[in-house]
Design a protein around this nucleic acid. Structure first.
Length: 298
DNA sequence: CCACAGGGCGGCA
DNA sequence: TGCCGCCCTGTG
């Protein structure tokens, strides 16, 4: 990995296991949009950047050395050896296929607060609507952080900004019945910032228990927060897609002990990475969807 | 107009 | 403890 710094961008040569579409479209983030050249533009940590892969060169536009060192290197998980992880979870032909299909996925290291609210919104919701709600919230309550390629961008709102809002205005951002969970979470986090940001120091079970004290955070949402913002890579979020995929691929093996047990005994500390490959592979290929439709027809 | 997709909560065994 | 009706919004 050779890093070259320029005034307005950073280029990283000889990088493996990074494909923008896999990274930004695998369900872990909702604020990145594809440009015509296949690169993605988005906001994180109050900065707008554009990220593209050209050959084996990763280009981060609209940034500099300081931000790369402080933010993007970690956010994009560039220091992790994904080859090693893949070999650990490549346990059979299904995983081999899924890993091959989503070979360019990396697990982003996102902000705890942003992920908390985003995944509260994700409950019983679909990806385009989650994206829409997050954008609405950011435009309404987030700081304007500048223009890029002719478009205005907004930071994700602070807990303080949302805590001050009223319920109806939050609802108008198209968050639906989750409005009260968002407001309650903001009010709680505003007064207990250290609480949220210290959860990652707890062990996996304790961290999950802490998160579930918040309304709107159940098992699945807690696992997403742990995996996407707290580096708890043994988390294996189970949503309807993962249920479908796992019952289709591993029907007999998950009978009895369940999906979570299957994941932890087969993938262990790397379960979260396995979930990412399985989710992306299953979603993009509609794994299990056809069977379901057929069984619903009479 | 209706069916459907998609997690968590709260009430009730 | 487990089950079930309900909560919203956009799309087909």
């Amino acid at each position: 990995m050779i890093i070259k710094y320029y005034e307005d961008r950073v280029e990283i040569e000889n990088i493996n296991d990074f494909i923008p579409r896999h990274v930004f479209d695998c369900g872990q983030c909702f604020r990145w949009t594809e440009e015509e050249d296949g690169s993605y533009t988005g906001v994180a940590y109050k900065k707008v950047v554009n990220i593209g892969m050209f050959g084996d060169k990763l280009v981060i536009n609209n940034t500099n050395k300081q931000d790369f060192d402080n933010i993007w290197n970690d956010y994009l998980d560039l220091t992790r050896d994904y080859g090693r992880i893949k070999s650990h979870i490549d346990i059979d032909e299904h995983m081999h296929k899924a890993i091959g299909f989503g070979r360019g996925i990396r697990t982003l290291n996102q902000d705890e607060w942003e992920i908390l609210i985003t995944f509260i919104i994700s409950a019983n919701n679909r990806i385009p609507m989650i994206r829409n709600a997050v954008e609405n919230l950011s435009e309404k309550y987030g700081e304007e952080i500048g223009e890029y390629r002719g478009r205005k961008y907004y930071a994700f709102p602070t807990p303080q900004a949302i805590a001050k809002a009223n319920l109806e205005d939050i609802r108008n951002c198209k968050v639906g019945f989750r409005d009260k969970y968002i407001l309650a979470a903001a009010k709680h986090i505003e007064k207990n910032m250290e609480w949220l940001y210290s959860i990652k120091e707890f062990d996996y079970e304790a961290a999950s228990r802490e998160l579930k004290k918040l309304k709107g955070v159940g098992d699945k949402v807690a696992h997403c927060i742990l995996l996407f913002s707290m580096g708890k890579y043994s988390a294996f979020p189970v949503d309807v897609w993962i249920k479908r995929i796992m019952t289709t691929l591993y029907g007999d093996e998950i009978e009895g002990n369940g999906i979570g047990e299957f994941a932890s005994s087969n993938f262990g500390e790397y379960a979260g990475f396995a979930q990412q490959y399985l989710f992306f592979y299953g979603r993009e290929n509609n794994v299990g969807k056809n069977n379901e439709k057929r069984s619903k027809m009479k």
